[in-house]
């Protein structure tokens, strides 16, 4: 009897073992599936990160192209117009010279010649004196030079933004980074957003310029997108103890309580399909973290939001700059 019971128990245990092995196998398989999923997600994520890099490159190019088309427009037009003015002026001079030639060839002993000649000369003189074309041309060229300087500055900023010439860690002035990012974002702001800047004198921080610029561009872009109907974008920089801080404040929609916990999640977006990838803030987070910094958000519905990023001041740099050269 006991044996029978034992046998039964053994059987049951065996069955259980078999059953749990089944479960374990299933779990194992499920785990493998999950791992594969995870890998797939990670792959698509890195793919998407790559495409957003491209997207922000596209965005950057579109922005700069727009900013440049206006100065290129008037510089080109002015130079062409001045060329026309020069041609017209050359014609005028030709006429004067012709007059001179006639005068030189004329028989001045004949008093009847003098009066008509005087009259013709007075007319030419009045025309020359009243001709504003050279002055106009001068103004047009002044604008053209102005425009070229503006274009050169844009190019400089663009180089500064991408730091194509030097990647890697660098001593950065965050105020300059803000300016770079603003130039790139200008076409998103210009129509409807007023920009207020309150910069403090800042010690330098150690960082990768293109990445810090990306952080600022993403924050500014989000701010601009939160202010569909226009508003004010305030950029404040300050030193606070061992930290350098930047506030990016908008007067836009604000972030609802139920959205707030998710905003730094990769792929989380409230924007329509095709408009937002939801990677902006997760990239911001990653970059800020890798620079030993931190990020804070304050928001009020319908009033707006402030994103504050802070980075540690580099003491080595501080000492360097304090030492006399």
């Amino acid at each position: 009897m006991i044996e029978a019971i034992l046998g039964f128990v053994c059987l049951a245990l065996g069955g259980f073992a078999w059953y749990s092995k089944q479960r374990a196998d299933k779990a194992q398989a499920r785990l493998a599936e999950l791992a594969a999923d995870l890998e797939r997600i990670q792959q698509t994520q890195s793919q998407v990160i790559h495409t957003t890099k491209l997207a922000s490159l596209g965005q950057m190019i579109a922005g700069v192209a727009h900013e440049m088309n206006t100065p290129i427009g008037f510089v080109k037009s002015n130079v062409e117009v001045v060329r026309e003015l020069v041609t017209e002026h050359r014609e005028l001079i030709k006429k004067c010279l012709h007059g001179f030639d006639l005068m030189l060839a004329a028989d001045l002993s004949n008093p009847q010649m003098i009066e008509p000649m005087r009259r013709a000369m007075t007319k030419v003189r009045a025309a020359l004196a009243g001709d504003e074309r050279l002055n106009d041309g001068d103004d047009l060229l002044k604008d053209a030079v102005d425009g070229l300087v503006q274009i050169a500055n844009l190019v400089k900023n663009l180089k500064g933004f991408a730091r194509v010439d030097r990647d890697g860690m660098d001593a950065l002035n965050l105020n300059e980074c803000i300016e770079s990012a603003l130039t790139i974002a200008a076409h998103q702001l210009r129509d409807r957003v007023e920009v207020v800047k309150e910069y403090a004198q800042l010690p330098k921080i150690n960082g990768v310029a293109s990445q810090i610029n990306q952080v600022l561009l993403n924050l500014i872009t989000n701010a601009a997108q939160a202010m569909e109907e226009g508003g004010t974008l305030t950029l404040v920089s300050r030193r606070s103890g061992d930290q350098v801080e930047i506030d990016v404040t908008d007067t836009g929609a604000g972030i609802p309580d139920n959205v707030m916990p998710k905003i730094f999640d990769p792929f989380f977006t409230t924007k329509p399909v095709g408009e937002g990838t939801g990677l902006g803030l997760s990239i911001v987070h990653k970059i800020v973290q890798s620079h030993g910094g931190s990020i804070k958000v304050r928001t009020a519905p319908k009033k707006g939001s402030t994103f504050t990023i802070s980075f540690p001041v580099d003491h080595a740099l501080l000492k360097q700059s304090a030492e006399p050269k």
Binding site: T70, P71, G73, F74, S77, N78, V81, D136, D139, L140, D143, D146, G147
Partner: peptide
Amino acid sequence: RILRALKA
């Protein structure tokens, strides 16, 4: 400056 260019 665009306006001045157009005027010219």
